[in-house]
Design a protein around this nucleic acid. Sequence first.
RNA 1: AGAGAGGUGGCCGAGUGGUCGAAGGCGCACGCCUGGAAAGUGUGUAUCCCGAUUGCAUCGGGAUCGAGGGUUCGAAUCCCUUCCUCUCUGCCA
Length: 423
Amino acid sequence: MLLINKIRENKDAFIQALNKRGFDATEVFDKALQLDQERRATQTRLDEKLAQSNTFSKEIGMLFKNGEVQKANLLKEKTVQLKEQSKELQERLNTLVEELQQVLYTIPNIPNKLVPAGTDENDNEVVFKEGEIPTLFEGALPHWELAKKYDLINFELGVKITGAGFPVYKGKGARLQRALIAYFLDKNTQAGYTEYQVPHLVNEASGLGTGQLPDKEGQMYHVTGDNLYLIPTAEVPVTNLFRGDLLMHNDLPIACTGYTPCFRREAGSYGAHVRGLNRLHQFDKVEIVRIEHPDNSYKALDQMVEHVKEILRELKLPFRILRLCGGDLGFTSALTYDFEVFSTAQDRWLEISSVSNFETFQANRLKLRFKDTNGKNKLAHTLNGSSLALPRVLAGILENYQTPNGIKIPEVLVPYCGFETIE
RNA sequence: AGAGAGGUGGCCGAGUGGUCGAAGGCGCACGCCUGGAAAGUGUGUAUCCCGAUUGCAUCGGGAUCGAGGGUUCGAAUCCCUUCCUCUCUGCCA
């Protein structure tokens, strides 16, 4: 959520920046500023009434103390009208604050200068590319065929017990999943991220804190009986760990990692590219989250990108990094780098990680602040990234490492798997 | 799920109707002490909003003691609702 006083100060610059998203903020800003102005005027009038009430109350107290009951009672009568007025003003103020909040919820984050203009994923900027795309043998298979051939993943069983998009991993497939999770967590903790195990269901306040609510209400599974949401990413519980906190400047930076399953309804996504592991309702992901001093957050973003790079290098997967254009940028993000692995058998790039800086957009909702060296309270910057999402990494490994005689396991994973090939 | 207790500032913890934004401690900041540090010692130290003035410095006002509502001229303090925590009992990985 943007800060209203920042909008007030930078209206034109913000409108221009939001244009990169294809978002015309002119009207919303006017609406918000108008509500804000009325809010402030109401606040002022309310404060005046309350100040008067307070003065009277003090006087009445003094009069009673001095035994001047009659005078006190006279004053009491005067307060009646004041009370009514301030009550009305208070109600008006409450609705204005609420309305303003609702309007602000609809405005996405201001894109960073680096974000290229553009409307969709075709306008994303490739900023880095590495790794050799292997030439596969005749008859190489996409991962869903491989999963079947080697009995690693059973999609039909998932359909039977739950529904489409809930795969069942089996045997070496299950073991490979576990190996990847352990490997990712090890890499992250070695890089200084503290490991957390967090709940997989969150309350409404958490959903609001990181911005899933109210914007993406329909994308989360909602447990209505207890009003809890299944997490779509570990970002939600991990970032919310710090909701409402006032940190000391020397508490920063904070770096966390955690593995969780992720649940997404993926309402409205269909098409040819959702086969196999490409798009699921439940999948596993290891996430990294950072809470940073504003001066350091872009350096932190770069560090996170470097960190993910190193993992993909070790896995020897061909990958590229995209800087997302305005049209493809997430609602809450100021700058996002997507990592994609090349799926040789499908002949396409698959997104496997997304690393973002949210600046103060989440922190404002979270009320996540820190006391800086001057003793002033400031909103912190929040960042997160996948390190990494499992299904498509798995797809990439299966497809790129296949041979006519089986699938080789990437060297770094062998100690975690306990086997070198799947055959 | 039943019974009881409780939710206060960055943290701990006093405070049961008016001068309480709130004692005390810890932490933190600055100073003194010291060759330096520790200890000791002095001072300071909540947040948000509105307004004036405008340099994020200062001043005035308002709100905030889990959240929401009520009683009252006046509430951290009384009442109601709700959320959460703890203890005991019950149930169960």
